[in-house]
Write a protein that binds this DNA or RNA. Structure first.
Lengths: 242, 242
DNA sequence: CGTCAAATTGACAAGGTTCAAGGACCGTGG
DNA sequence: CCACGGTCCTTGAACCTTGTCAATTTGACG
């Protein structure tokens, strides 16, 4: 079983976990619609586009498995990754007719998707979608802060912590470890750095004992310490019950 | 009349222009609700917060006049501006209960606001709001690309072009000129640079004849040329009629 | 005319990039 | 089982963009 498709035998588990985490009050209508949706999957191969800048958005997609990236390519070949898209994430969510995609989304690993149930299926589902969207927005802002005000070491640590937090939410991380399908070059494209510099900083982090990354397995040795060291606080968009 | 409050005598004109631009089909219900809303304004003084990170969002605001910024402050004092908020922009738009603000918004100039009419007033208004939200998101992504892959000169040019485009939409720019209430330090905080470097790059741009910026009046000499030179294409989220 | 914030300047340091080359890893085919 | 090819990772040295520090000038305004 390829490491990047940990749930190929039971697709949709991470996606369901995420939507339930966003709205624990998902009702039966929502769950039933999700089950039906998840029964019809497609798989997109690496480097293929899930959505293309300037093209109409025809449906909302729910990612069941695999990683993708929201990318913008400049005329001279420079490339910027806005954010990563993980299992449970929604693609192309919006509330008006004839939307046009303002960015391109490419698969990094093989990505399994399905058509997301319409929000009208249930108010509880609509709420989960709305919260998902707010979190996406918060992650975009986190990315802006990373690029604007953190140095290379902090950028890397902050991104890895975000990935850990998001994967933990869907049950794809255990402790500080998760499957990391990104190359250093992809990380560089996300962090506004060169792959050479990402490499140097990663080795420094390894020597400092902050992380172990061999093959596709990445472990943050002490996520909480690291979080404290770089002053990160996780994204939050709903009032948590006391 | 202070330059930053060009429409103090007729508040709401830029805001109405923007919403009408986003959805030309705004119906009478929407327009009537907007007129009522715009009749009850408040003004927030510079440096005051319009919304605070971690606090509940109690209502959606519509900006009638003045500039604000969405800001994130780091523990050690570093500051990153996510985006600028201009007349016609909506603050705190979201589709679920008990939202928590994921960023702080501070007034840069005196900012005149009103409570935005509820989306339920009219489907056409809801559509305008949805498009507004999609544009905000696209602007966040533009900011990510700026910070991640553009150099200092390109960042400045790209930001100024975005401001010009947005102000043109609401009728607050004539040709390539608009009132620019930002200090170089604020520009630096938005672009992930230092004010010293922004200053140097601005002078270089002036010497190159790209812009004239004296006092609060800024003019881009040849916006189209500049747009071509840095390879910028404006934000677009709806299919434009052919 | 004095005051304060903002803009400007210079010298120097640092963080990150570029270029170029070598080495490790992995799946494929003979 | 090994050789091959490609992708990714690693390393060094020179270079360049941007940051830092500190001082000076400008401009708005009471």
């Amino acid at each position: 079983m390829p490491a990047s498709r940990a749930y190929a035998h039971d697709p949709g588990v991470p996606a369901l976990r995420r939507l339930l985490a966003l709205n624990p009050a998902l009702d039966d209508d929502a769950l039933a619609a999700l089950r039906v949706a998840i029964a019809r999957t497609r798989t997109v191969r690496p480097h293929r586009e899930l959505m293309s800048e300037g093209r109409d958005i025809v449906e909302t997609l729910l990612v069941l498995d695999g990683w993708a990236a929201r990318v913008r390519q400049l005329a001279d070949g420079r490339r910027q990754i806005m954010n990563f898209i993980l299992p449970g994430d929604l693609i192309g969510l919006c509330d008006y007719d004839q939307p046009v995609a303002s960015s391109t989304i490419v698969a990094i690993t093989p990505v399994t998707i399905c058509t997301a149930p319409d929000r009208s299926v249930s108010p509880s589902l609509a709420r989960a979608y709305a919260i998902s969207r707010a979190m996406d927005e918060a992650h975009l802002m986190a990315q802006i802060t990373r690029l604007g005000r953190l140095n290379a070491h902090e950028r890397i640590a902050d991104l890895l912590l975000e990935l850990l937090e998001r994967l933990s939410l869907v049950g794809l991380a255990t402790g500080g470890s998760f499957v990391m399908p990104l190359t250093q070059e992809v990380v560089a494209d996300a962090l506004g750095l060169t792959s050479v510099h990402v490499n140097r900083m990663l080795q420094q982090a390894r020597r400092a004992g902050e992380l172990v990354w061999s093959g596709r397995d990445l472990m943050l040795t002490a996520p909480d310490d690291l979080r404290g060291a770089i002053g990160r606080n996780p994204v939050q968009v709903v009032r948590r019950a006391e």
